[in-house]
Write a protein that binds this DNA or RNA. Sequence first.
DNA 1: AAAGCACTATTCAAACTTGACTAGCATAGT
DNA 2: ACTATGCTAGTCAAGTTTGAATAGTGCTTT
Lengths: 193, 193
Amino acid sequence: MSTARLLVLGIILRRGITHGYGVYQELTSWRAETWTNIKPGSIYHALEKLESQGMIKADDSGDRVKRGPSRTEYTLTIQGENEFITLLESALKSNDFQVYAAGIAFMEMLPRHHVISLFDERLVSLRGILTFLRSLPTESLPSNPSKHPELVGMWVGYFEYAIEATQKLRQSLISGNYIFKNEESELEGVDHD
Amino acid sequence: MSTARLLVLGIILRRGITHGYGVYQELTSWRAETWTNIKPGSIYHALEKLESQGMIKADDSGDRVKRGPSRTEYTLTIQGENEFITLLESALKSNDFQVYAAGIAFMEMLPRHHVISLFDERLVSLRGILTFLRSLPTESLPSNPSKHPELVGMWVGYFEYAIEATQKLRQSLISGNYIFKNEESELEGVDHD
DNA sequence: AAAGCACTATTCAAACTTGACTAGCATAGT
DNA sequence: ACTATGCTAGTCAAGTTTGAATAGTGCTTT
């Protein structure tokens, strides 16, 4: 799955209406360079694709405060919102750390219990891989890389970390951290939809 | 940089001569599915590209023991060997875990001290990123994802793990583990160049 | 001996990413 | 007034990946 697609949908949804460069600015303001590799070109491609699929639509509602060249602004369609939810769910279950991280950025857009159960699924899958990796024989003389103990060891360590981090986050959500979808009750006026 | 390119070059070099499906088989025999996402299509694309750039050449030397459809076998050119070294060096310095892992698979093809100094460079870069991540403010209420403490925390943990793993491996090489290029002295006859 | 299946080997279109380039507008300095 | 610098906004060709499809060969079963 394309991370660009998830990020673009999520950012447009969060901001209500945006153009390509706006998405780019938002991402760089997150210091996302450290953890995603998303270049302007991918953003514009995702926008075109999403528009052609009816997930977003260009919205030129009147004069906007603009400085610089002309831009095209987009909003999500209902279809786009559904697509976003689907991608977000799959990102939160993903074994790919980059995709997962993109999902974390938007996790509050789902109900809390839903995120927790996605993490449960993610844990099952991560543990399966870990068990498999541990079952691999690690011989000491790596005549061929398949048995390279360092390679296997590295990935074992990585998956252990991923599991630990997911468990910690899961626990933190159970303890009530962060405000999720439909939980705005205790805050003063929140103005987005 | 393309992982496929590095893997294809490395596998052809290691086997002397191979065809596309051979590369694919080798990769799957490593259980590489767990840690790389390389599909047959990427392998064949890499082969075409590398051939068009003179990095490898099709070698139809006589009748080979073959079962099944006809195949095209390739060997590396001098240029290809240089390209492999370049890609391998950059993989071992890479912050991308997948690329780095592919590099580890071939690390013994460089001299030991060379790998150690590449790890030193890698550590400098990883530590830089970690310092930067730690300098980011982590507020408790993530109104926007840039400040999402979980996101930052996750990446901090990840880079800490990457640094630790690299240090351990570096130390292990210093202690004399594994046999690197030009170190075959203590073994009986080795037949590749 | 024909049909079905699994393995070998590859091709191809469509989707996606990358890197480099173009171009508009604003503002600071000369 | 002019020019050059930097931010805003986007385009495009080339490279790469994906997923599905194709096709040959041998083995097993009916």
